[in-house]
Design a protein around this nucleic acid. Structure first.
Lengths: 213, 213
DNA sequence: CGTGAAATTGACTAAGTTCAATGGCGGTGG
DNA sequence: CCACCGCCATTGAACTTAGTCAATTTCACG
């Protein structure tokens, strides 16, 4: 994807609008592990993720990365900082190689703000983001590690077959040791069994659900 | 305030629009401690807080209230649940007596979504909310209790003169004991002194700032 | 097989909560 | 006037949760 027309947010724009948009934006490719922006950077650029997986995280004083979200195409990134003219509240790093459309926000604002379709898309993107943050708060502040693991098993059980436990632990903001201990505990209590392919068999969904609901 | 015209979000509407809005909305008064909605309730109503202070919080499994935010007029409340048609992610309770305008969201959507001014206001409200949530995450997940107290002292030092420590602790999501211990520690280390009127004198702003920045 | 990454396990540590005891202070009623 | 009550603050001790560090085992895969 390397044409503005292909971006859902802009499909409904007129030819003229697209032309103007092309003048204030550029595509740029990134390789895996490259940083798109750092927490604390000054904004000014609105990003639309068109390819790849982009991870958003905060860094705590000890240097640990606190996982917030991973974006996949097509996601609007950085609009909060732009609208509120504040610094980026988190760091964005590519997990795979990818591509973004970088848009000069000031000039976008002047040209396109009144456009109803774009407003609507922006609203959708914002509500999606609130949902994500609200979920982060729920998962990270309300749930204990045990509850988080129970939730992962019930809601995303297949993750355990495709990802390493270290990766899962990092996405759940806990250490691999903690994850390992909790899985052992669940096994010992007979809630689950895990076979050689890392497939988790749930024996007592009721109890596991009760842990996080 | 009991006229739709007085609500900033709607000041720019035409007479006809106001009339239509009146048909799908009602004002309602609440007394202190009344619940506007519970976490988990089904949505459908968009609220605009026109008077009073409304506290938003989540409840953890032990029954503790996790403070998220307090709204003051004029704030849009519950738009996420409405837009995304999900349940309210938190409980809202009046701290003082107050008043809201209750709007039937479905019908609002049909009539006013395309209105550019309203869209713009909604976008502003949403970004404000993202900022709040992003801040909650920062404050609650990144900062230690010591950092939170240092931050309160530097940024909201006057709170200590007007509020009881139990209230402050509840807004900062820590126990009164923890707050007390940290204040004692800061006093012992000579960072602050507290006089009889609960006024905090900061002696070493540099160190305190370093704790949370 | 052998090697390096991942997982497991135990001992220890850190941060904060909980629970209980104590002390202060302001208002109230006899 | 003062004894008492209730609320708040303070402090200590035990407890809980999860992270850290280190040693060991398991596992996948060339």
């Amino acid at each position: 994807m390397d044409k503005i027309r292909d971006i859902p947010l802009f499909t409904k724009l007129s030819e003229g609008s697209i032309k103007r948009l092309e003048n204030i934006s550029t595509f740029r490719r990134y390789s895996a592990d490259e940083i798109l922006f750092y927490e604390g950077d000054d904004p000014g650029t609105l990003y639309i993720l068109t390819e790849g997986v982009l991870r958003l995280f905060k860094t705590d004083p000890k240097g640990n990365e606190i996982y917030i979200h991973q974006f996949i195409p097509t996601g609007l990134v950085g609009e909060l900082a732009c609208f509120e003219n504040m610094r980026y509240p988190a760091t964005a790093r590519f997990i795979t190689r990818g591509q973004v459309l970088k848009i000069d926000f000031k000039r976008l604002e002047e040209d396109f703000f009144a456009h109803p379709d774009i407003s609507m898309e922006i609203i959708k993107s914002l509500t999606k983001k609130i949902k994500i943050l609200s979920n982060v708060i729920h998962k990270e502040m309300i749930l204990t590690s045990e509850a988080k693991v129970a939730r992962l098993i019930i809601l995303h059980g297949d993750m355990f077959e495709t990802m390493k436990n270290t990766q899962i632990a990092s996405m759940a903001n806990m250490t691999p040791e903690t994850l390992s201990r909790i899985l052992s505990k669940f096994k010992k209590l007979g809630y689950i069994t895990i076979d050689d392919n890392h497939h988790i068999d749930v024996h007592d969904e009721i109890i596991l659900r009760a842990l996080f609901e």
